[in-house]
Computed example of a mutant assay.
Amino acid sequence: MKIQSEKFRVEPDKKFRLDDRPTIIKPYCKSKKQYRKTLEDHVEELSSLQQLHYASHRYALLIIFQGIDAAGKDGAIRHVMSGVNPEGCEVFSFKQPSAEELEHDFLWRTTCRLPERGRIGIFNRSYYEEVLVVRVHPEILKNEGLSEELRDEKAVWKERYRSIENFESHLHVNGTRVVKIFLHLSQEEQRKRFLERIDEPDKNWKFSITDIHERKYWKQYAAAFEECLNATSTEASPWFVVPADDKENARLIISRIVMDALKDLKMSYPKTTAKRKAELQAIRKLLMK
């Protein structure tokens, strides 16, 4: 079974249409048992790559998850990154901005959470909310403290796309690799998952009446995502559109995307110097006594 991550990439030089990408594809595994074994193998390989990434200490990896409510962001992060050493990986979720965050530019609150070299940073939602939910609900702009001139709807989204692209380009040339994953969910599958959250007691906490309210804006969100992905998928910091109706398939695809991103870093363990080897041999002799 070969999962090709490039198949899900949004090419920067081609016009992207969200309707052209499926929300579900043929399962990679024929059974639950095969899926669990495949994911286990992926997680094990990811763990080894993360250890190498941590030891080489040359790059940082930022993974951004975006998607409509119930697309499976939390579950994907939990399952795919289950074998990664917590010491080398941090997850941040970004909700409604705080009063302090609104006093800064829209990139400020996420910039403070960027991963260090040798580490993996995961953003569950991100600065992209500022060209997605804020675009669908432009009234939010009025509460962001911007002057009327800077809130001009004819220019604000284009300027924010440009800010994001420049920001990610800056990260890239300074050693942070950015991988962006959009979980592509169908409206019908979202309806089913919302019903599960209502019917299953242990999932009640996941459901909010605002989730139903946001469903009314499905077409507006789809348009915002499509324009955003077209504007911000670059060669250095690509978007990947992952079919999300099948959670198991989505997790296998995501794990492959992350593994390929780490492999592209061409990492190696630090070489031991002659002086360091001598020190270790001296310590070894002491331990053998």
Rank of each mutant, 00 (worst) to 15 (best):
H184C: 10
L185W: 01
S186K: 05
S186C: 07
Q187L: 11
E188A: 14
E188Q: 15
E188I: 00
E189S: 06
R193L: 11
R193E: 08
R193F: 14
L195S: 12
I198R: 15
P201A: 08
P201K: 13
K203Y: 01
K203T: 04
K203G: 09
N204P: 07
W205A: 00
K206G: 09
K206Q: 08
F207V: 09
S208P: 09
S208K: 15
T210C: 01
T210R: 13
D211F: 12
I212M: 14
H213C: 03
E214V: 09
R215V: 10
R215K: 12
W218Y: 13
Y221H: 12
Y221A: 12
Y221F: 15
A223M: 08
A223I: 04
A223V: 02
A223K: 12
A223E: 14
A224D: 01
F225N: 01
F225T: 08
F225S: 02
E226V: 12
E226G: 11
E226Y: 04
E227T: 13
E227L: 07
L229A: 03
L229V: 06
T234F: 01
T234I: 09
E235L: 02
A236Y: 01
S237W: 07
W239V: 08
F240R: 00
V241C: 14
V242H: 03
P243Y: 05
A244C: 12
D246N: 15
D246A: 08
K247M: 06
E248M: 13
E248S: 11
N249E: 14
N249H: 00
A250W: 02
A250L: 00
R251Q: 10
S255W: 07
S255N: 12
S255G: 11
S255D: 09
S255I: 13
S255L: 08
I257F: 04
I257R: 04
V258F: 02
M259Y: 01
A261V: 11
L262A: 03
K263S: 02
D264P: 01
L265H: 05
L265S: 04
K266A: 06
M267G: 04
M267W: 02
M267V: 05
S268M: 10
Y269H: 10
Y269E: 05
P270S: 11
P270M: 10
P270L: 10
K271M: 07
K271E: 15
T272A: 12
T273N: 04
T273E: 11
A274V: 13
